[in-house]
Design a protein around this nucleic acid. Structure first.
Lengths: 113, 113
DNA sequence: GTAGTTACTTCGCCTGTCAAAGTATATTTT
DNA sequence: AAAATATACTTTGACAGGCGAAGTAACTAC
């Protein structure tokens, strides 16, 4: 696991849902977009991403369908469901909470005496 | 696992080191301070905390010694080492990076076309 | 023809979290 | 005095998410 990736751990679902909020997409593309948007600093590992797809689909937060590409490798597209949109909002909110908890806890307070 | 705790996951070491930056402390106390500082919203589970102590100690980021209480239960105190202080700074920095990566990735961008 | 890119899938290991149960001492309540 | 509560630490075992590795398959470029 790279330096940052275990800090991002737990946010994979949020990242994927966020990408799908902008429109249907597929694994390989999401992977690239994520890498691009972070300037290559962060990337979702393939196995991690496809694990997330399966997890999200069985939770009915996303749905999948095969693309009808005439050429190139087949693509499995994912679409966010209404449930997924709600979950996304909830996750965004949880992130705000987690962030504030962390900011509170990881900065040094004055020495106790 | 509670809602927020898997988002905090991975930051336990940082939280513990941060507490020890303010002075030596022991498990039970750190647990209470963490709960207090977050207004009871978040708490480290005992098993998680003591697991973290063992992990940090074997990485030489903290050291332990028994307190000399005349009364009450014995306490195992922890002290942050110079290595630990460096690690803490590094972890703080990684948090900044992780935070900016997440802020970049979890907010919806304009629809692609 | 073979090396590289696009694209998805499965397997199995690793790590961190945590519920649960246990040990031990001191204090408070009944 | 017995029981309950608080302080304080420890171990065990299970679970979930991340991910390295290896594989499948089709197309593209040299």
């Amino acid at each position: 696991m790279s330096i940052t990736s275990d800090l991002i751990r737990g946010h994979t679902d949020t990242i994927v849902l966020s990408q799908l909020m902008s429109g249907d997409s597929y694994g390989y593309e999401i992977n690239k977009v994520v890498a691009e948007r972070t300037g290559g600093v962060f990337e979702l590992k393939e196995a991690t991403l496809y694990t997330a797809f399966r997890r999200l689909e069985s939770a009915h937060l996303i749905e999948s369908y095969w693309g009808d590409e005439q050429t190139g490798a087949r693509r499995r597209y994912y679409r966010i469901t209404p449930n997924g949109r709600e979950a996304y909002k909830r996750l965004l909110n949880e992130w705000q909470i987690a962030k504030s908890i962390l900011e509170t806890l990881i900065h040094v307070k004055e020495s106790r005496t």
